[in-house]
Amino acid sequence: MKNNKVIQVEGLTKIFGDFAAVNAITFEVNKGEIFGFLGANGAGKTTAMKMLIGISTPTSGKANVAGFDVHKHAEDIKKNIGYMSQKFALYDDLTVKENITFFGGIYGLSRKRIKEKSAVLIEELGLEKVANKLVGALPLGWKQKLSFSVALLHEPKIVFLDEPTGGVDPITRRQFWEMIYKAASEGTTVFVTTHYMDEAEYCDRVSIMVNGKIEALDTPKRLKEKFKVDHMNDVFLKLARG
């Protein structure tokens, strides 16, 4: 069933000068899947992801994201995905509500819809008491949960998470992953880049990039069995060290 593949990538390549940052990668991601996209610093993760979210044009190869071709319909892709990065998430000097309204507006939600959505969202996250407080004053974990919810505001088909839980306390992290599971169970595809291997263990399937190529792609369980190790960390070390 072809419709079930929300991301299809074939021979995707990005060349800077004479350096292939991404070297002919091929993979598919299913609807509702939590897909881990791993790699060392400089392995090409970020470059690959930029192509998938339509902000960088591939040198060659094909990629179809949320039903749109990255070469021809990059703008449509942007409307159908959500994005959250650890570096930029929300505006610290706007309140919780203002942030929600602002991002809802960016994605063209009607004012009525934004109002409904933000009420639901604030209740679900238990943020009633701080709804009118500046986001900058919230603890890191709350901010990250909020920014994940905001990334889902326009009900995107795929949400891209760039190292979402670095530095967050373990309990909040679990709550964050519960939110990810919930989104996935509702049919949203979750695409996570990280170089923290414990985060990788939560994913349905992971791919590991080394020097611009995908060197492994499977469920964490099967990867561990294949490399005869107990942790994803060791899988990664074996692969990255060659």
Binding site: W177, E178, Y181, E201, P220, K221
Partner: peptide
């Protein structure tokens, strides 16, 4: 088979002391 439903079920189990997603 479904991690999210599993977490929900465990959290509502009357003898639950703690339930945390932990990798797979």
């Amino acid at each position: 088979n479904n991690t999210y439903q599993l977490i929900k079920a465990l959290n509502t189990y009357k003898h639950n002391h703690s339930t945390y997603p932990f990798g797979e």
